[in-house]
Design a protein around this nucleic acid. Structure first.
Lengths: 226, 226
DNA sequence: GGGCCGGTGTCAGGGTCCTGTCAGGACCCG
DNA sequence: CGGGTCCTGACAGGACCCTGACACCGGCCC
């Protein structure tokens, strides 16, 4: 889950934020002053920063610029000052959002979601791994020990059906209709052929399958692995 | 300069915003209702959207979701409602910021700058490199070993779609609709032609493609390279 | 123990589909 | 009219898919 760095010098506020954010599934790291914030951000790079401007040691804007020298992590500023000039200064220094106290926790978390969404949408790709094989379902790509493995359309389609149901037993009938469409329920020889092909390309020892297992008389089962 | 789409049903507010934004060097496009907003966004894709939630024809959240189906342009919501639930709904629908009326123009423009900064910094790395080829997406220019390479509009369009999804397999159907628009799903001969053209102009050995790979029966894949 | 049988893994061959390539003509624009 | 771009059709080569045949294995009956 996402990691949030909360920077505030008032322990009650830090505590309240931490409890609320953890309850929503975030990992929370805290700092009580500007120096600690910069240190924590370097030690445990967060996915988003919640920063109170009224810190004892550094000016809030300096904390922002300090972070911005090396990271583009989204920064949400909390402040008791609703003065327009303060907002402009913080935003122009590199902050991404500005919320004035008192604030609603729902709004704050909604804004955090919005900031995180923008950063994570691009890179998240659904992958399934087993052994030294990585199956990237979004990119339609398979690698083994880093090397790309070329699959034919039918091989890929069969692999996709299998890895989308890890641990489940899939009958031959179901595999045949999922991969070849209805009407091919009798082409079992075909299914055997492509199972063998997948094992040859992806199993460590194709003659003793570990991930694409045969359940005699029933069907096949994909067993996810470490 | 950046283009801003301002959506509001009250002409005085639209006028005030337009004047202020133009004075700050933005190009301003306006719409008075939700349907017009979606239309304008498609006709003249903006770099950021300023959206009033109180529109006569569509619910503001519907406008956001409508935009989000096909674009990730930053959206700043204006609203007279300071209710926390409204903010959460808009932000979770895909908005990036939420400002309640009355607002200060300085603050608004600062927030716009913050949103644009995030997008342009991401796009300043808008050059894709592979081999001795550099594709500058922002400038619409391709160089190979420093020499400029001339591409026809269709070639460029196809190249752009490919390099914007490095490593991803793109089906012929998707490439055809992305480059030629819907209705050209059968013009596969055409696609082959332009793929060959790109390879001839950009591949070190066009007969053995390295960056624009064919996945027989499935589509094509652009492989970024050192 | 020997033979039979259903189910599975393996191999090779031919048919089919897909892809790369070329030439030729339509179209737009200066 | 000329240059450039785009589209269409045809063909050769290759990749892929399906089919059939055979070997192997375990269980069962005789």
């Amino acid at each position: 889950m996402s990691r949030v760095l909360v920077v505030d010098d008032e322990p009650p506020i830090v505590r309240a934020l931490a409890i609320n954010l953890r309850a929503r599934g975030y990992e929370v790291v805290t700092a009580g002053d500007g120096a600690g914030a910069l240190q924590q951000a370097a030690a445990q790079p967060p996915d988003v920063v919640v920063l109170d401007l009224g810190l004892p040691d550094l000016d809030g804007v300096d904390v922002i610029t300090g972070l911005r020298t090396w990271t583009s992590v989204p920064i949400l500023v909390l402040s008791g000052r609703s003065d327009s000039a303060d907002k402009v200064d913080a935003l122009d220094a590199g902050a991404d959002d500005y919320v004035t106290k008192p604030f609603g926790m729902d709004e704050l978390t909604a804004r955090l979601r919005a900031m995180l969404r923008r950063n994570t949408t691009a890179e998240s790709s659904a992958t399934v791994e087993f052994g030294d094989v990585v199956v990237d379902l979004a990119a339609t790509r398979v690698t083994r020990a880093g090397q790309e493995v070329r699959l034919t359309p039918t091989e890929w389609h069969l692999l996709e059906v299998l890895v989308r149901h890890p641990g489940r037993l899939l009958s031959q009938r179901q595999l045949l209709t999922d991969v070849w469409g209805p009407g091919y329920e009798t082409a079992q020889g075909n299914l055997r052929l492509y199972i063998a092909q997948l094992r040859r390309k992806l199993e460590p020892d194709p003659s003793r399958p570990r991930y694409f297992r045969t359940e005699p008389g029933m069907g096949y089962r994909f067993e996810a692995g470490p």
